[in-house]
Structure formats: structure tokens, C-alpha cells
Simulated assay, not measured.
Amino acid sequence: MAPILRAYKAGDAPVLDRLAVAAFSQYGALFSDWPAMARALACHAALAAKAEIIVAEHDGEVAGSVGYCGPGRPKAAYFDEAWPIIRMLVVAPAARGLGLGRLLSEACLDAARRDGAPLIALHTSPIMTVALPMYLRMGFAWLKDVQPIHGVPYAVYTKQLDS
């Protein structure tokens, strides 16, 4: 069965919080304070207060999600507030390889185009050895390095959008 994208529902919160921790757990040893990072990830669904959450289902199960934070919404200081951004793309370990990351990212690009944005941004890390190459293949380009998160380097990437 093909994956389905849908809007976030309040009942998704516990599943998405667990999913975010599971999706990042493979990197746990790379963070200087994995317990603090895991606590932050376990509040993933709180992103719904700031962003549109898009949920991916596969075989009737929640298998991934991403936040789309539109132009003019509050963002971290290293982003221009006018830019839409992709936040917290997560895919369940068991659902990797199905193209969900790309599908969720494309949904954010569509939302940015809907909002008339000339570009979209995100921040990610070189430890994300699947996500970062995917973003680069999609046309994102490095803009600047930003403050590490619990010892892990991160950078901002942007992509110009066609109309």
C-alpha cells in the first residue's frame, strides 16, 4: 500500500514523540548529552503550536512526520523569519527506505510554494547521513554553520523555489 500524507491530529502526539526519539536514537552516542536531546525530541508534537505537522502513514501506521513552519512564523534566530522552514523530519526506523523522507520534504516544498515563498530553509547535520545527501539531491545548498546541538555540528541549507 502506498504511503498516505495527512494533517496532524491531537491524538498523534504520543506516537510522534516516541517516533522522534526512535528516529534519532541511532545518533545517541554522537550527542554530548543524549538524555537531554532525547527529552527535547520527546516533545516533538509540541511543534504543532508553531508549525503545520504533516504525518506519513504506511500500512495504517504512523511512519513519519515533518513540521512546516511558514513565512512570518517565529523561528530560531539563524533563520530569516520571512523564510518557510522544514523542521524535524523523522521517519520510523522500520519504515526507512520507502521514500517517506523525500515525500514529506516535497510536501513542505509544496506548502512553501502555496505560500508564495521564493525559497525554503532547514538545518541539519552531517551525522544525518541519509537526510543530508537527500536534501542536497533535492537542490538544497549550504548557507552557514550554526551553533552545535549537544556537541553535534549543524548548518542551515536553503533551496530556491520555482514558481
Rank of each mutant, 00 (worst) to 15 (best):
K75N: 01
K75F: 06
K75Q: 12
A76W: 10
Y78V: 03
F79R: 00
F79L: 04
F79I: 03
D80K: 11
D80F: 06
E81P: 14
A82R: 15
W83S: 15
I86M: 06
I86L: 10
M88P: 08
L89D: 09
L89K: 04
V90C: 08
V90Q: 06
V90W: 07
V91I: 10
A92C: 04
A92N: 02
P93G: 10
P93F: 14
A94R: 15
A94H: 13
A95E: 02
A95F: 06
R96H: 11
G97M: 07
G97Q: 09
G97Y: 06
L98I: 07
G99S: 08
L100M: 02
L100P: 06
G101P: 02
G101L: 03
R102S: 10
R102W: 07
R102G: 13
L103N: 07
L103A: 15
S105I: 01
S105W: 07
S105T: 15
S105C: 14
E106S: 13
C108A: 09
C108G: 11
L109V: 12
D110K: 02
D110F: 02
A111C: 06
A111N: 01
A111G: 05
A112P: 00
R114Y: 01
R114I: 05
R114D: 07
D115W: 03
D115R: 05
